[in-house]
Design a protein around this nucleic acid. Structure first.
Lengths: 230, 230
DNA sequence: GTTTTTCTTAAGAATTTCTTCATAAACTTC
DNA sequence: GAAGTTTATGAAGAAATTCTTAAGAAAAAC
C-alpha cells in the first residue's frame, strides 16, 4: 500500500500541528507550511498527494495559492475557512478546490475528506495503475473482485490473507522479509511479526497449495523471507 | 482533437479564472465575460462553441442573455445557478439552456458537461452511452425507467436503494468498500457511513433476494465490502 | 398531516485475527 | 554429526473486527 503525503497549509501553528497528529495517525506523511509561498516551495521539492489550504493567510492566501497550483498541477485541494457563508464555499470550489471544510471542524472529518480525495485521485488512474489481474501457473488473483482462484476453482481468502497473497504475487520472484510483509500489509512497524506472518503464510498455503508441505507457489527463502515462485 | 472555444460568463473574476484554468488544462480556448453584454459582444467577434452563463449577474443576467443568444444562434448554453435559489423556478424559466449546474460544483464536473455538450453539438464520434439496461440472472435494472425487476416481477426501490443497486450491477463482480459506495452514491466524503450503507444493503436484500440470509446477488466480501455477484 | 424515505442507535451474531504453546522439521555452521 | 538457528505445523481460545437485524427518530415528500 502506497505512502501518501499531505501538505497542510495554515498560518496558525496549533492548527497545523493538530491536523498533523491526526494525519500521521492514519499513516500519512505530513508537510507543513504557514502560507501560500511556503506551500508552493514545498510542492517544488516534494511529491505531494493532497493539499489542505486555509483561505485566510498572510503573504499569500488560499485562493491565490490555488490558482498557482492549478496552473501547474491537478493535485486535490481541500480548503479550510472560518466563514460559514454559502457564497464563500461557492467561491472556493469554483476557483478550483476539490472540497471545502469550515472551521471549526472535527479532525476526523478532515481525515475522512483527505481519504476521500485520495481514493478519487488514485482510482482515477491519475496517480498509479494497480495490477488488477495477476496469474501464475493456474493461480489467479483478481484485484477488483478480490478473488483468488486455483485452476479455475475459487479460493476463499480472508482480507489479510488476500493482501499478503496480492503483495507476493504482484512482485512474484522477489523475496520479502517477514518485517517487510508485515509493514506493507498491516501498514505499521513490525513488532513481534514473526509469529503473526508465519501463521498467515501457513493458512494461505493450506488454501492455495495442493501439497502445503511442498509448496509450488509460496516458497520460503531460508534466513531471508518468502516469495511467490514465478 | 479540434480546437474549441468556451465563453465563461460570471461576475466573479475568481470564478471566471478558476474555470478558465480547468478548461485550458483540457485544451480549450477560453473567453471571459463579466456579464451578459460583454458575452454578447464577444459572441459577435469570436467563434464560440459552448457558453457558460451565470444566472445572477449585474447589467444583464443569464436569463436575458439566453434569450438574446437563442434569438440568433443555437450554441450550447450551460447555466450556473446558486443553490439558494429555487431551482425549479429557474428550470422553468430558462427554457433556452442546455444544461444546468448548481453552485457549488466541482470544476471537473463543469468540464465534463462542457465536453458532453460539445460532443452533442459537434456530433462527432459516439455520444457516451450509459449502461441503461443491466441484467444478471433474472435481476434486471432499467436505468432510464429507474425500474428493477426480478424474474419479470417489478420491484419497488427507493432512490438511494436504486442508486446503490445500479452502482453494484453496473460493476458486477467488482467489490466496493462501504466508503466507496457512500461516496459514489451520496457524492460526498464518507464519514460515519458504515451503518447508513449497511441499512440500505439490508433493505435492498429484503427486496431483491428471495432468501436474504443467503443472498444470491448482493454478497458481502468480508472485511472489504459488497459486490453484485455475476 | 400523513406517508415514505432516510438516518441513528444498539445489541448480538458471525468471522477473522491474534496469541500462545508445543513439537517437528529443515537448514547452517563448526 | 552436533549444536544452534530458522521455519513449519497444529490446535484452541480470547480479542477484535465486521456484519446483520431491528426498531424508532428525524427528515423529506406527498
Amino acid at each position: 500500500m502506497g505512502e501518501f503525503t499531505v501538505l497542510v497549509t495554515d498560518d496558525d501553528q496549533d492548527i497545523r500541528d493538530g491536523i498533523e497528529i491526526y494525519l500521521k495517525n492514519e499513516g500519512y506523511n505530513v508537510l507543513k507550511a504557514a502560507n501560500g509561498f511556503e506551500a508552493l516551495e514545498l510542492l517544488e521539492i516534494h511529491d505531494v498527494h493532497v493539499i489542505i489550504l486555509d483561505i485566510m493567510m498572510p503573504k499569500m492566501d488560499g485562493i491565490s495559492a490555488t490558482f498557482k497550483i492549478r496552473a501547474a498541477r491537478n493535485i486535490p485541494i481541500i480548503m479550510l475557512s472560518a466563514k460559514v457563508e454559502d457564497s464563500d464555499k461557492i467561491h472556493g470550489l469554483s476557483v478550483g478546490a476539490d472540497d471545502y471544510v469550515t472551521k471549526p471542524f472535527h479532525p476526523m472529518e478532515l481525515v475522512a475528506r483527505v481519504k476521500s480525495q485520495l481514493r478519487r485521485y488514485v482510482s482515477l488512474g491519475t496517480y498509479e495503475e494497480k495490477n488488477l489481474l495477476l496469474e501464475i501457473d493456474g493461480l489467479a488473483l483478481d484485484g477488483e473482485a478480490k478473488e483468488v482462484s486455483l485452476h479455475g476453482d475459487s479460493i476463499k481468502l480472508t482480507p489479510i490473507e488476500f493482501k499478503v497473497t496480492e503483495l507476493l504475487m504482484a512482485n512474484a520472484g522477489r523475496v520479502f522479509s517477514i518485517q517487510e510483509i508485515y509493514e506493507r500489509v498491516w501498514n505499521e512497524p513490525a513488532y513481534n511479526a514473526e509469529n503473526i506472518v508465519a501463521v498467515h503464510i501457513r493458512k494461505i498455503r493450506e488454501k492455495i497449495e495442493t501439497d502445503p508441505k511442498n509448496p509450488r507457489y509460496l516458497k520460503v527463502v531460508w534466513g531471508i523471507g518468502y516469495k511467490m515462485e514465478k
